[in-house]
């Protein structure tokens, strides 16, 4: 555990809680892609199956349970409790275009051809692109609520911090995981355009809206 890893995890946790609170307090999931949230729930489910097979630490187990629990709570709020406010017409990204190639890739490129290992790889690949339906939705409507941009910023910051964590681990522990690193770089790059808008607009007190 190093400072980048810890702040990365906390940033991830902050993102998840910001989104839950935003939906809960406003009683609305307007502007939120339910498809991205389903993908994240799928990511956590397929990655944390090792909860049943190995114990790493209390911290590790607790965080995994919190992430999974929050992910399903978010999906429940969007598709059940506040379904009436869900903007399905704008959430039109075709997720099969992500899940099918990612599934194929995880079968082809993995560390070991075993069910748990393939599912872990699937979750890593899927996480790297799971935000695309949300970004697509924002580009379609041309705007995002400020609280939604805070959520996205924390989520992007988390993976960027993990990159520093991996550099740290390479230097001080001498090992790296190519699958996690390549997927993590892809994931972080997808946020770059958003980071730019966040810094130049949202942090200056303006609403995030895209030019028509």
């Amino acid at each position: 555990m190093n400072i980048f890893r810890l702040t990365g995890d906390l940033s991830h946790l902050a993102a998840i809680i910001i989104l839950l609170l935003k939906i809960w307090k406003s009683r609305s999931c307007a502007g939120i892609s339910g498809k991205s949230q389903i993908l994240f729930a799928l990511v956590f489910t397929t990655r944390y199956l090792d909860l049943f097979t190995s114990f790493i630490s209390l911290y590790n187990t607790c965080m995994k349970l919190i992430y999974i629990g929050c992910a399903y709570a978010t999906v429940y709020l969007i598709y059940a409790k506040f379904r009436a406010t869900y903007d399905g017409n704008h959430d039109s990204f075709r997720v099969e275009f992500l899940v099918v190639p990612v599934g194929g890739l995880s079968v082809l490129i993995n560390h070991d051809f075993s069910p748990l290992e393939i599912l872990w790889t699937f979750s890593i690949y899927l996480e790297s692109v799971a935000i695309l339906p949300q970004l697509f939705m924002i580009s379609k409507t041309g705007e995002a609520e400020t609280i939604t941009t805070h959520y996205l910023f924390c989520l992007g910051l988390y993976r960027a911090l993990y990159l520093f964590n991996w550099i740290w681990r390479f230097y001080f522990e001498g090992f790296f995981d190519m699958i996690a690193i390549v997927a993590g770089v892809v994931q972080t790059v997808l946020y770059c355009d958003f980071f730019y808008l966040y810094v130049t607009k949202v942090l200056k007190g303006k609403k995030l809206s895209l030019p028509a």
Binding site: R5, D50, S54, E117, F175, A180
Partner: peptide
């Protein structure tokens, strides 16, 4: 043997 080196991560 930990096949995926970063299995202790979230």
């Amino acid at each position: 043997l930990v096949l995926s080196g970063f299995k202790d991560e979230l």
